[in-house]
Design a protein around this nucleic acid. Structure first.
Length: 503
DNA sequence: GTAGGGTTAG
């Protein structure tokens, strides 16, 4: 009975009958428990999950591999890694599935590096991975954007002759794309004999966040020709691709096609893409009336897209109005305040900037610090603004100074508009100069062979001045620079960026 | 009763 409800995803009835079952004095068994735990996982009902964990302990079933694996997974999906880890560490017998769950949990909770270490440990203990385990490892590489590691994992998969299942192949497409190499992603895509809608969507999305809207559209047409039916997520991906390539008319056409031909009801993500599409193109009035007239619940992402457009076009009034709605929904998100303050700063409204800053201090809100990573010799080097913690820090700063001089001779002018503080020009230049992107790139220039591409990953959006700086680096140092920022890729070559400054 | 782990999204 309990199992039946669990399998149908009927959580209310499942929990109710489970409670009755426990109350009746019957012992829960290791067949029913994992099913109920899975329901907790899928509904991220941590409270119920913990309750069941207590029951598991009471009946001494925590050493059962099925029960334990389900518990680890439940904690991971509820984002309480510590509990997942404790559970995992105390297990007496760990089989392949338990290891796989734990590796996946680490990636999901933002410790992809940890996940890869765990994979090494698993192999040391003599556990042989299967294709599902490899999917989790591939995911960790995707999350990290670590190209070198990605190649090693790909080699391993080929060497061990893993069958390229739809899921593993799709995960690999995603991995290569998120490591900055769309070509390798496409190679995997072309080699896959069996593709499903997720596979096509992953490849379309990849073109989208690499700013290759034309190719995303071509692939979408090809998908339709093969008879594959796009789903709601496929449309999010293709709309996103259009907005990041400035293909406004194509995007709007697809938005109607989606509803009329494919019967996909637009959700808030689709609307967000269209707001972004219109907003980036400067059609702020249309974007804002679209939001006003839509019938579904608005979320912070939607308002965020509009606020982002206000930033591009310096539309202070609309920004204020938008920020009000945004902060009503998410008053604790420091990023929103920073964005608004940014808009005020660019308009020279320093009093308003100060007001926002005060608001933040008052609520003890702190912005997530920006960082940039670069992978050199199988090691990941991370930099923050004005960072001096790197062992070669002294050399890096000297090199950076020298590099800046060279770039300025080539025509680079530091754009101090990107500095939020109301300080003098010289001071502003000093802050700009030590942005984490610049430090990572300078390090990369000397730590990698001449002429080889430089790949960096940033947790936030690239700053406008750094964007210009990198263009000049690609020209002066004659290097391809691939930047993965919080939501897309930039490929810098010969002084230009693949985003066409439209980002 | 052989169950528990896997891919896409601003």
């Amino acid at each position: 009975m309990v199992g039946g409800f669990a399998k149908n995803g009927d959580c209310v009835d499942c929990f109710r009958t489970f409670r009755e079952y426990i109350r009746s004095g019957d012992h829960p068994d290791n067949y029913t428990l994992p099913l109920v735990i899975r329901v907790c996982r899928d509904t991220t009902d941590l409270q119920m999950g913990r309750l069941i964990h207590q029951i598991v302990h009471k009946f001494g079933l925590h050493s059962d591999p099925f029960v334990a694996a389900a518990l680890v997974d439940m904690y991971a999906k509820c984002k309480v890694t510590d509990d997942a880890k404790t559970m995992f560490d105390t297990m007496l017998e760990r089989d392949l599935v338990t290891w796989t769950v734990m590796i996946g949990a680490q990636t999901e909770c933002g410790s992809a590096n940890e996940a890869l270490l765990l994979f090494d440990r698993m192999q040391e203990e003599g556990i042989v991975p299967d294709s599902v385990a490899m999917v989790n490892v591939v995911n960790a590489c995707a999350k990290l954007g670590a190209m070198h590691k990605a190649r090693l994992v790909h080699d391993y998969i080929s060497r061990k002759k893993f069958w390229l299942t739809v899921v593993l192949g799709t995960a690999m497409i995603d991995m290569y794309a998120k490591c900055g190499c769309v070509e390798s992603a496409r190679e995997i895509f072309d080699r896959m004999r069996i593709k499903n809608v997720v596979t096509w969507t992953a490849m379309i999305a990849a073109y989208g966040y690499h700013g290759r809207g034309r190719e995303a559209l071509d692939l979408f047409s090809m998908m339709l020709m093969t008879g594959m039916v796009p789903n709601s997520i496929t449309f999010v991906s293709i709309l996103y691709a259009c907005s990041h390539s400035g293909m406004v008319e194509d995007g709007l056409k697809l938005f109607s096609l989606m509803q009329e031909e494919y019967g996909v009801r637009p959700n808030v993500k689709h609307f967000t893409c269209v707001v972004d599409l219109l907003g980036r193109a400067g059609r702020l009035d249309e974007a804002s009336s679209l939001i006003k007239n839509m019938a579904i619940e608005k979320d912070e992402g939607l308002w965020g897209a509009l606020l982002g457009a206000c930033r591009i076009y310096g539309h202070v009034e609309l920004a204020e109005e938008t920020a009000r709605s945004l902060l009503e929904l998410q008053p604790e998100n420091a990023g929103h305040y920073v964005l608004l303050a940014n808009i005020y700063a660019r308009a020279g409204k320093w009093k308003d900037v100060a007001r926002i800053r005060e608001l933040m201090t008052h609520q003890r809100l702190k912005k997530v610090p920006g960082w940039t990573c670069i992978e050199v010799d199988n090691k990941i080097h991370q930099f923050t603004v004005g960072d001096h913690s790197h062992p070669q820090s002294k050399e890096i700063y000297e090199k950076l100074k020298c590099l800046c001089n060279k770039l300025e001779l080539a025509g680079y002018v530091p754009d101090t508009n990107y500095v939020l503080h109301d300080v003098d020009e010289e001071w502003k230049r000093g802050i700009l100069y030590t942005h984490s992107e610049k430090l990572a790139i300078t390090f990369g220039l000397s730590a990698t062979p001449e002429g080889s591409p430089i790949r960096i990953t940033k947790n936030l959006r690239v700053c406008g001045d750094c964007h210009t700086f990198i263009k000049y680096v690609s020209l002066v140092a004659n290097r391809l620079v691939i930047v993965r920022d919080a939501n897309r890729f930039h490929h810098f070559k010969d002084g230009a960026c693949s985003c066409g400054d439209y980002w």
